[in-house]
Amino acid sequence: QEIVSPESYIKHPLQNKWSLWFFKNDKTKTWQANLRLISKFDTVEDFWALYNHIQLSSNLISGCDYSLFKDGIEPMWEDERNKRGGRWLITLNKQQRRQDLDRFWLETLLCLVGEAFDDYSDEVCGAVVNIRTKGDKIAIWTADFDNREAITHIGRVYKERLGIPMKMTIGYQSHSDTATKSGSTTKNKFVV
């Protein structure tokens, strides 16, 4: 009789169950109709099964998004868990689609599923990558733009994980400011 170690068949559970969403910009449909839930997972193995199966962000056409959110939170400002929140925003230039986009997005996913922000990870709602001709964007969304301690911790760890140089800064913006902005830029509530 062969003894099989549990290590070889038990999947590694995640702290949270996550949902991966896909947005494709079809101007004949409403924003919400363009948003589709791809799949949910709650183990490390199922995360990789999904990630290995889908297109890299850099292969998506302009106007598409991937969003990874905790189960029960929809990837939109209006969701109860997002509406008082904001995001750490990484803006990429055109060269970075080839150099950094896929690497940064995978690192973002690993931060989320691995709970990289310790107890402040509870403040994380999800993350979004936007593929856009004028420049791609990646962001981690958190629940409460007043929670300075959590937001700055998350921002510092995130910046380090992405390997962004000390001398460069990233900014955190509230969704309410993003939604009501008049120009092309939103003011930063926090910077690290």
């Binding site: 702290q15 690993l110 709970e115 990289a116």
Partner: peptide, 18 residues
């Protein structure tokens, strides 16, 4: 309770395992 934390090295190793 305890939080289930995985570092990037562990997560990346899981990618190639069967």
């Amino acid at each position: 309770g305890t939080r289930i934390i995985y570092d990037r090295k562990f997560l990346l190793e899981c990618r190639s395992s069967p």
